[in-house]
């Protein structure tokens, strides 16, 4: 036939990376805005989900940086409402997960997301140490990371009184195995971030 076969020029864009890593086609988005309309946190976001999708679609470095630096990706709580209703069946939370990971790697995280990231990291630290979540340790770690020293102090006595806070962490036996999982996935050499 007269038309030549397609030659795919890889642009190295985030959109391509998302497709290669997670088989999600950002290209499919036709900007209907249903995700933004249903997102419970859209009004608190700097860019609603559909705009993040558009920024990625442009395959423009500057626009990609806007997405990675956005507060949106950290406010997304993966409630999956968008994916459930997306007419094009795009895994938007998967895109958010990818952007979060990349934003961290490139140290492009939004300043206001500091506490959210601190909490996630403290959470993982706690598991890394003991294998299970140790809530008191998590809160202490989070406070140290976020300097939110006063927050939720009022809750603690109530939780203790109701038997909801343990003073000792539960340890699992195979802590070595678990430490190996963290080492292999987060590519940590020695100390923790």
């Amino acid at each position: 036939m007269s038309s030549a076969p397609h030659t795919i020029h890889k642009k190295g864009s985030l959109m391509e990376e998302i497709h290669d890593a997670r088989e999600i086609s950002v290209q499919k988005c036709y900007q209907c805005g249903k995700c933004s309309a249903g997102c419970p946190l859209a009004e608190d976001m700097d860019y609603p989900p559909s705009v993040i999708m558009r920024l990625l679609q442009t395959e423009d470095r500057q626009n990609e940086a806007i997405a990675l630096r956005s507060e949106t990706i950290w406010l997304c709580v993966t409630c999956e409402t968008c994916a459930t209703r997306c007419p094009m069946e795009i895994d938007i939370p998967g895109v958010m997960d990818f952007c979060r990971q990349r934003s961290l790697e490139k140290k492009m995280t939004h300043p206001k997301a500091k506490n959210i990231i601190a909490f996630h990291k403290a959470f993982l630290d706690s598991i890394d140490y003991t294998g299970r979540l140790y809530e008191l340790g998590l809160i202490a770690d989070y406070k140290a990371r976020s300097f939110q020293l006063g927050q939720d102090v009022a809750l603690a006595p109530g939780m203790i009184a109701k038997g909801k806070l343990s003073f000792l962490p539960e340890l699992i036996r195979d802590r070595k195995g678990l430490a190996a999982i963290f080492r292999k996935t987060l590519h940590r050499k020695g100390g923790r971030s």
Binding site: Q31, C32, G33, K34, C35, S36, A37, G38, C39, A42, E43, Y47, P48, P49, S50, V51, T81, R85, P87
Partner: peptide, 27 residues
């Protein structure tokens, strides 16, 4: 310009939750 995500009833009204994609996707 935008698609509606959800409709529910409250006080005899239908609450229509959409977005305006021409206003930065604002709900």
């Amino acid at each position: 310009r935008g698609r509606v995500s959800r409709i529910y009833e409250k006080d005899g009204k239908l609450i229509v939750k959409g977005a305006d994609t021409l206003l930065n996707g604002r709900p």
